[in-house]
Design a protein around this nucleic acid. Sequence first.
DNA 1: ATGGGGGCCTGCCGGC
DNA 2: TGCCGGCAGGCCCCCA
Length: 283
Amino acid sequence: MPELPEVETVRRGLAPSMEGAVISRAQVNRPDLRWPFPDRMSERLTGARVNRLGRRSKYILAELDSGETLIIHLGMSGRMTVSGDPIGLFHHDHPAPEKHDHVVFDMDNGARITFNDARRFGAMDLVRTEDTDQHKLLAVLGPEPLTNAFNSDYLAERLHGRKTLIKAALLDQGIIAGLGNIYVCEALFRAGISPKRQAGRISVSRLETLTAKINDVIAEAIDSGGSSLKDYRQADGELGYFQHSFQAYGREGAPCQRDGCTGSIRRIVQSGRSSFYCPDCQT
DNA sequence: ATGGGGGCCTGCCGGC
DNA sequence: TGCCGGCAGGCCCCCA
C-alpha cells in the first residue's frame, strides 16, 4: 500500500497522538515481521518519550528521549491506526484486537497505536539516533522528491548510460527514494514518457519534465491524503488513500485522459510488476 | 557494476 | 458454495 505520500499521511496522522507522549506499554505479539525485531524491543520502548515523529522515504522515524530512534516500515500491507483519546477530555474504549495486530503501543495520553500487517513485509528496528542515516536500510536511499537534491541534473547524471528501463530505474530507491509502482506509473504518464524507454536514452529536457511531474504527483498525493486526515481516527482506520484519482494506474482499457489523445491505457508486465501507460502519448 | 528474477506472506477476486 | 490461479502499492538477495 504505502508509498511516500501514504507514509507521510500516516506520519501526520500519528504525530498528534505520539509526539511528546510516553510509551507506557509496548505490546509485541510475535518475534518478527520481515526480520526479527531488535533485542528487547518492548523493554527499550517502554517508558520512552517520543520527541519527534519524522520520515525518510517510506520509513517512519520515531525519535525517542532514550537516545534511540524506532524505524518503522509498513511494507505492502502495514497499517498504523490510532484509537483512544490523546487529548484526555473524553473516555473512549479501544476496539477489539484484530488478526495481524503485531505491535500495540499504549501512550500515556490515552492513545493506542496499533501496527497491523497481514503480509508481514513490514519491519521495525531500533538504532542510536545519531546513527540513523547510517542504518543499513537508510544509508542506501537516494534523494526524495520535493527536495533540492532531487533535480533534473541529478537525475540525468544517475541515469546516464543506464540500459535499464526507466520504469525500473524510478522504482530503484537508491536513485530516487519514496516512489512505488503507482506513482512511477502516474509520473511517467504525466511526463509522456513510455515505461519501456531505456533510462539512459531520455533527453535532458524530458528529464526536466519528468522531475517536475514526479514532484507534482507526490505533492498532490500528500495534499490529498492530508485532506482526509479528519477521518483518520475512524475505527476502520481508513485513510482515504483510494480517494486519490489515478490517470494511469489500474485503468487498463480505459480511455486516455490526456487532452486530444484517443488512445487507451494498457497494462504490461515489466520485471514482474504491472505498468499502466498510454502507448499513444507516452513515447 | 548492472540487471533480472525468486522469494517472503496473506487476502481477495474472478472464473470455473 | 468451493476450489484455484493470479494478483497486490516493497524490498532484499542471489545469480549471470
